[in-house]
Simulated scan of single mutants.
Amino acid sequence: MDPDRNKHIRNVAIILVLAVAVWKLPGGGTAAATIGNVFSVLFLGGFCWLGYRLYMEHRDTVMGLEERQRALAYGAFALTIFAVAATGRLWSDLGIAGGMLWMLMLGLAGWAFYSVWRAYKTY
């Protein structure tokens, strides 16, 4: 089976033609933003599905944690989601202070996850 030698050149040319169409055609920017939003929703939906599957597969382990550790894990997860959702606003509106607050939130969430993992492995 002989591979097509011009396959990669053809694929790059298709991408370039689509990029020029989005750039030059009227309404192309709106179409690009719409497609980007659709991909973003699909990407986030995939993460939600992955989280649901992981939770369902490890539900016994999560429910086996003591209440304090489970609350700490849920809180760390919520803080991580909040930090990721507020990334743009924290970095652009608050500048360096917002960036430091963002890093602090993710650092606290990481510490909480590590603390829960360490307590889980101890017993």
Rank of each mutant, 00 (worst) to 15 (best):
2 D>K: 15
2 D>S: 12
3 P>H: 12
5 R>S: 11
12 V>S: 09
14 I>E: 00
15 I>F: 04
16 L>Y: 04
17 V>T: 09
18 L>R: 02
18 L>I: 07
19 A>T: 10
20 V>S: 10
20 V>C: 13
21 A>R: 00
22 V>L: 14
22 V>E: 01
22 V>C: 13
23 W>P: 01
25 L>T: 12
25 L>M: 07
26 P>R: 02
26 P>Y: 02
27 G>W: 03
27 G>A: 03
32 A>P: 05
32 A>W: 00
32 A>V: 04
32 A>Y: 00
33 A>E: 03
33 A>V: 04
34 T>D: 07
35 I>N: 04
36 G>T: 04
36 G>S: 10
36 G>M: 03
36 G>W: 03
38 V>S: 02
38 V>I: 10
38 V>M: 11
39 F>Q: 03
39 F>N: 07
42 L>K: 04
42 L>D: 03
43 F>T: 10
43 F>A: 05
44 L>A: 14
44 L>T: 09
45 G>F: 08
45 G>L: 11
47 F>V: 12
48 C>H: 05
48 C>W: 06
49 W>P: 00
49 W>D: 05
52 Y>I: 14
52 Y>P: 03
53 R>V: 15
53 R>W: 14
54 L>P: 05
55 Y>S: 07
57 E>C: 06
58 H>M: 02
58 H>P: 11
59 R>L: 13
60 D>T: 12
61 T>E: 13
61 T>I: 14
62 V>E: 07
62 V>I: 11
64 G>Y: 04
65 L>M: 06
65 L>A: 08
66 E>L: 11
67 E>M: 13
69 Q>R: 12
71 A>S: 14
72 L>G: 04
72 L>Y: 09
73 A>F: 12
74 Y>S: 12
74 Y>W: 15
74 Y>N: 12
75 G>S: 09
75 G>N: 04
76 A>V: 06
76 A>L: 09
78 A>C: 07
79 L>R: 07
79 L>A: 15
79 L>Y: 06
82 F>V: 15
83 A>T: 06
83 A>L: 09
83 A>F: 02
84 V>F: 14
84 V>T: 10
84 V>Q: 13
85 A>P: 07
85 A>V: 10
86 A>L: 06
86 A>M: 15
89 R>F: 13
89 R>S: 15
89 R>A: 14
90 L>C: 04
91 W>N: 10
92 S>Q: 15
92 S>V: 13
92 S>D: 12
93 D>R: 09
93 D>V: 09
95 G>S: 01
95 G>Q: 06
95 G>Y: 06
96 I>G: 05
97 A>C: 06
97 A>P: 02
98 G>T: 05
98 G>Y: 00
99 G>T: 15
102 W>T: 00
105 M>P: 03
107 G>D: 07
109 A>Q: 00
112 A>D: 09
112 A>T: 02
113 F>K: 03
113 F>H: 08
113 F>Q: 08
113 F>W: 08
114 Y>V: 11
114 Y>Q: 11
115 S>E: 15
117 W>M: 09
119 A>W: 09
121 K>L: 14
122 T>I: 03
122 T>S: 13
123 Y>W: 05
123 Y>P: 08
